[in-house]
């Protein structure tokens, strides 16, 4: 009996302790005002972690991301503008850290390629549509064809 109780207790513990735990980096930075806090959140979302390449600084647990978050925080405390902070990162880690790449001769294809492709597609569709003669739907059937049609319909019945 005692065994059963213990087993039951342990078993129920399983469910109680099964509260989902989310591991997300939590830094305890204090900001002078809401604006700075919003800017910090925006910047760490926009900047990419160089180590874990599919995460931004805000999401990543890696030591480098923690270091960079601290750096963003410190730069904000020093009163640096957003653009200066982004420049700071690009100078060290290259354009790679930007989730939204800058418009430059290197990224023209990236920025304008899709629009060009769409334009190209539209032109092709227009050309094809214009070329095709209108479908002649109201062509009369010849006497022979009418006969054939009647025969087919009769067969069905």
């Amino acid at each position: 009996m005692l065994h059963k109780v213990i087993v039951l207790a342990l078993f129920s513990l399983l469910f109680i302790s099964n509260v989902p735990v989310y591991a997300s980096p939590v830094d305890t930075y204090e900001f002078q005002n809401e604006v700075t806090k919003t800017r910090f959140n925006a910047l760490t979302k926009e900047l990419r972690c160089p180590k874990c390449q599919n995460q931004n600084l805000a999401d990543s647990n890696s030591p480098i991301a923690a270091d960079l978050r601290r750096e963003v925080y410190e730069l904000l405390q020093q009163g640096k503008a957003d653009i200066e902070i982004v420049d700071f990162m690009v100078k060290r880690y290259g354009d790679f850290v930007l989730y939204r790449p800058r418009v430059s001769s290197l990224t023209y294809v990236l920025w304008f390629g899709p629009a060009l492709l769409l334009l190209f597609g539209v032109i092709i569709v227009i050309v094809i549509l214009r070329k095709k003669p209108a479908v002649q739907s109201e062509q009369a059937l010849s006497a022979e064809q009418k006969n054939q049609l009647n025969n087919i319909l009769k067969d069905k019945e």
Binding site: P50, K51, P63, I64, D67, L68, E71, Y93, G94
Partner: peptide, 13 residues
């Protein structure tokens, strides 16, 4: 320890 120089070098790992 703080990764200061490493950051200036763009070290990520």
């Amino acid at each position: 320890e703080q990764g200061k120089l490493s950051m200036n070098l763009g070290v990520y790992a």
